[in-house]
Design a binder for these strands. Sequence first.
DNA 1: ACGGCCGTAGCAAGCGCTTTCTATGCGCTA
DNA 2: TAGCGCATAGAAAGCGCTTGCTACGGCCGT
Lengths: 358, 358
Amino acid sequence: MTVTLADVAARAQVSPATVSRVLNGNYPVAAATRERVLRAVDDLDYVLNGQASALAAATSDLVGILVNDIADPFFGIMAGAAQSQIGGPEGAGAGRAGGEKLAIVCNTGGSPERELTYLTLLQRQRAAAVILTGGAIEDPEHSAAVAAKLAKLADGGARVVLCGRPPLELPGGGEAVAAALAFDNRGGARRLTEHLLTLGHQRIAYVAGPVERTTTRHRLESHRDAMEAAGLGDAVDALTVHGPYDRRSGYDATLELLRREPALTAVVAANDTVALGACAALREQGRSIPDDVSVAGFDDLPFSADAMPALTTVRLPLHEAGARAGRLAMGREAAPAGGIATVPADLVVRGSTAAARG
Amino acid sequence: MTVTLADVAARAQVSPATVSRVLNGNYPVAAATRERVLRAVDDLDYVLNGQASALAAATSDLVGILVNDIADPFFGIMAGAAQSQIGGPEGAGAGRAGGEKLAIVCNTGGSPERELTYLTLLQRQRAAAVILTGGAIEDPEHSAAVAAKLAKLADGGARVVLCGRPPLELPGGGEAVAAALAFDNRGGARRLTEHLLTLGHQRIAYVAGPVERTTTRHRLESHRDAMEAAGLGDAVDALTVHGPYDRRSGYDATLELLRREPALTAVVAANDTVALGACAALREQGRSIPDDVSVAGFDDLPFSADAMPALTTVRLPLHEAGARAGRLAMGREAAPAGGIATVPADLVVRGSTAAARG
DNA sequence: ACGGCCGTAGCAAGCGCTTTCTATGCGCTA
DNA sequence: TAGCGCATAGAAAGCGCTTGCTACGGCCGT
């Protein structure tokens, strides 16, 4: 069967306690003894039992990263960056490597229930930290449930970090999170719409993300604000369609928008993936980009620069944000003042937007 | 402090054993008693301690999924699909939900050391299953180390599944893996090159993936075979460049290839991302696609259909394969005959390839 | 030379749960 | 009515590890 600490101890002619101390390196052990133990570990191919260790020490080396959709690079990039700060490539030996943690990426699929399920699972594993990424669902009941869970996790010693998700505004919720990195969705969206307005566009269609999501709402609200400031607020509702964050949604929504307003000259999409779908629909309808219609996305995912024409979009520093979230989760970086940091969202103008026709 | 089983037992006026049995539902408990226990659990907001539970029951509900690059949708899609079969959206209660497991996505970054580190970490957690995705590194020493680790994991009761990775050819390695799903990289690559040859291309450049990777080798070998069959084998080496699986690599390599052979009429890329980089380089050099140069990718990632022109590529059913790997890992599906299944790789012809000029 | 200290190692008590085995009470049959 | 079995609950022994405390030398100081 599996080799236990006791087996190693027997072979090295020492007590289990000594073996444990050698492995953890947190207690003086004579060099000769350590040698002997290490050799025994090696001979027996001993591997620590994580559960037993965690149980006895009342600590866990699991860090959970919750994402809405792991197949979406938006989340993949953040998760990868976070994980790079968490599961350092350090030790691989039998003992627990210093500070090394195991990152768990949990795919909620955007479902509130699964989000809670995973939070419970992480709580059950006494996770050392939890990182929540992406927009939150705007359901008071669910928000409260999440806040309660996070409070409990924090209470149990877990560091909770929000990445690309607005800070919780609930009683107790604020105290629970160690830090929140919020994307400047409002600012980015505003700058994007202003860019289009400056180019002379007026009939600007908007393919929004799923309803009841903070990200969706923030971006849409800023779009509306910018439009209103330009005296174009009335047209916004009629030229807005909601849908999921996928290509299909951009395609379908754009066809629908063209039906509603054949004379539209610009389409702003919820994100780059959606924007690509919009491009496909426009081309299929014989509109050229950007000559007939300008298209803009959001996020600046790697492929956006490769679209034809290259996509004008709002860059979100996903990698940096993810890495920072990882560091915060590990306690390797001090939390920003007030626990909240705003991550910039800069406009990146490329070929898919141009002056409005006529 | 945290609520324990004993606390619940005290409140429900029963023994800890009874509480455990109610939670696990694997032993008859009188309805009235169960009620009482459940209410106590609820009142106290009790959450099972995963480590203690796992330790006592000698089972873990962790399933590891190793990927080379989580930011790459190629892996994201597989991982997501696998996870959907693993962490079912079932129970979220205090007890352990039936068969529910926690999927861990581990990002190796393509580094052999980290691959081994994660394998050790998973072994330490006594993972219930491990899924390895993507191409393997072709270093005998490393392969042996991985095979040994896998054997040990399997020995400890973990189900090992390979997804998109060729079966191990080492002693003991074969026995260790429960199942292997191998992409038909050879067939796909052959069909792709044959497609180009049929279109009349002769000067076909090849942007290969990283050296020392099974995926790279298999695809390249088949390309070479097809070229040789057409009497074009001599030119292959001169028109092949290796690089990582990213856009930059495709861009740089294509510039280099154009320098070597300004008259090339087709570029085959290691994957779709690389192909996009190649497209960018070609366009920058004033070549039109597919009129001047045809371009083809591999994998058929979602954005490939949206490139301009849409990318001809080889479709890998990533979602299906990932899901199947997940099911195999959960023991919910019987292993294929011989433990190895070949996943088809079909040619998808789109706009980026056309008859060779002149 | 003796007491005390420091450097090491071992003992043993858990960590919170699962599970085997045992105990109890009840309903049923003969 | 006595006997038996079944359904249900509890006692207790771990699972493999960590760690506070104790034990034991040898070395130092005075």
